[in-house]
Write a protein that binds this DNA or RNA. Structure first.
Lengths: 161, 161
DNA sequence: GCACAGATACTCGGATAATCGGTGTCCGAGTTCATAAGG
DNA sequence: CCTTATGAACTCGGACACCGATTATCCGAGTATCTGTGC
């Protein structure tokens, strides 16, 4: 079980976009260059964020991506769901209904208890993700490195470190 | 992000093995036939369980698999870790150390805050999995269908539903 | 000087290949049991 | 009749193909800007 690498990229990009602010758009190429990522592939992930309403995209010159909501309203769960899709990691295939006992179990309406247990665990995971926002991450970074946001803004504006 | 299908198989097999008891071994072929699963591939999953010390395996005639520990001492976390491996789903690749800012971040010993947040969520998931045992599942099934364990034992003994 | 039409350059967006892990399968090493010979 | 050596059948165990999803890439549709012309 491995999570898409795009999730990590998307989260970092969201934090960076929160420093840029919603007034100007940043191109996928710039966002990719910041971390030496493949531009076209990062673009694909940003499209997923746009479809989920996390960022908004503008075409043409001066176009690019910007946050579509306040950072405090974007949870990690939102970003993960946007990239990974809404489906659970564990998917019950109802094997209890297969094999020699299919007949005796076919009409049983009660849910698979193993599925229930796994869902309970994933729910806890989702809860924890939903409790953390992009603003939280940003705040903690600023606590540790107060002048980092300014450096980021400068780099995106001038292209020079 | 999709979990191995083998996890579902392994959990169901562990519950079944808990009904059989540790006195007799069950072959991978029998366990597979119970749910119409591919025998050789299920065998692969059972090997993983054996390496993790969850089941013990015996070769030769009258050989097979049996639970190596009391069902109350086998958590869902144990089974998931045995099949999926011990690594986290989210793996921080430290992209903050790449690109133009590599130099300024190279010596920063503080952990990646995004990685921390994701780990916190996975920890909650692990906690929930570790809180449920095979014995718990078995107990709930027996509550709902008191004569199901007997049916299972009979099928494994005679091969007839 | 100002408005406007055209061309241009730049951006996202979805459609298209390459690569890796998960899925599925196979045959060999090792062990147990049954058998038969010998004492 | 009991012991022992032999053979055979059965099991797990790891090594070998196959497939789908993730990763990576490319070119086209659309738009804001810039330029040049006419008034």
């Amino acid at each position: 079980m491995r999570m898409n690498e795009g999730v990590e990229w998307a989260l970092h990009c969201c934090v960076n976009l929160s420093w840029i602010g919603p007034d100007q758009a940043v191109t996928a190429a710039k966002l990719a260059a910041f971390y030496d990522l493949p531009t076209a592939y990062l673009n694909k992930q940003l499209q997923a964020l746009a479809r989920a309403g996390i960022v908004s995209s503008s075409p043409g010159p001066r176009g690019g991506f910007r946050l579509a909501k306040a950072p405090a309203r974007i949870t990690l769960m939102d970003v993960v769901a946007a990239i990974e899709g809404p489906e659970d990691a564990f998917r019950c295939t109802e094997i209890r209904r297969q094999g020699p006992h299919a007949a005796s179990q076919a009409e049983d309406p009660s849910p698979c208890l193993i599925d229930e247990a796994m869902r309970r665990a994933e729910l806890a995971w989702r809860r924890e993700l939903a409790a953390q926002t992009i603003a939280d991450i940003r705040g903690k970074v600023e606590e540790r490195a107060p002048d980092f946001p300014e450096q980021v803004r400068d780099w995106y504006a001038t292209g020079k470190a």
